[in-house]
Amino acid sequence: MTTAPTDTTDSAAFEASLLQFVGLEIGVVAVAPDEVNVPMVRHWCEAMGDTNPVYLDASAAAASVHGGLVAPPTMLQAWVMRPFGQGRDESESNPYSQLTKAVESHGFTSVVATNCEQTYDRYLRPGDHLTMRTVIDSVSGEKTTGLGAGHFITTRQDYYDATGERVGSMLFRILKFRPAPKPAPAAPKPLRPRPSLTFDHLFWFEGLKQGKLLIQRCAECGVLRHPAAPMCRECRSIVWDTIEAGGGGRIHSFVVVHYPQIPSIEYPNQVVLVDLDEGVRVVANTVDTNADQLVIGAAVQLEVRMCDDDLSLPFFKVVQS
């Protein structure tokens, strides 16, 4: 599966340009620093936990199908590994570097090895001296993978003994890919809308911050009022104080809001109009209440909750339907 290129002509030209690398030999012929030897085989077998006697036990090896000591076949690549401290040949004349740079210039900057296929023409024996030639075997078109879009690059390493006979071969495939963008971290949940505070109802929000639902009371005639207002509806007095609501009440009415949705509020958004036991009505959200518990007349209990550092609000929970 290929992704839709933004510019078909450019993309096709790019992919065609990659194909010119196929079949090119990479760098110089690598010469193994050491002949195949028993000490290195011993280190390998010790580390791998390999107890096959044909690698280290000369008499058992002689009696085996191999007729003498051989090296573990999977050790093939180890004989020509780069010395410690020596980096990859990244010179500009190296076709593999050119290919890598070409692919990276199109954003395929990450790399992962995907496949390794070794074929052994014969087992190696102590004294064999290897050389290795590397050829760019294939370059895929753009592929979509779990890691992101990318190109598979396969190299072939052929291993030869001192007589020039091929003793083994390895296909090694990597994926050069454009890392899939990481999902943006989830934005913090926005805060509930702020009340526009005025002197007339500041006391109400301040009371909630202390965990109290306050009800305004006329200091002259004693009538309770909510929402807060500067003057008594009954006697026109502007002198007032407050009492704290006991927390009991009943559902006078309710509505479940589905739309429009405000990011800071949980949906379905259950809104109740509660007749407090004191005789005033309050609009609030519910807590710990299922939709089927929302019944007109149901008894509710107040819970003041802190929504964030600057806002606490009254919520009601149905305690009896």
Partner: peptide
């Protein structure tokens, strides 16, 4: 690769000859 080679010859024994390992 080395561990897979070991795993196979642990089972097949010293007279086995591995021809190809593709992973």
């Amino acid at each position: 690769n080395g561990l897979i080679g070991r795993y196979i010859t642990d089972w097949a024994g010293p007279d086995s000859i591995i021809k190809n390992v593709s992973i």
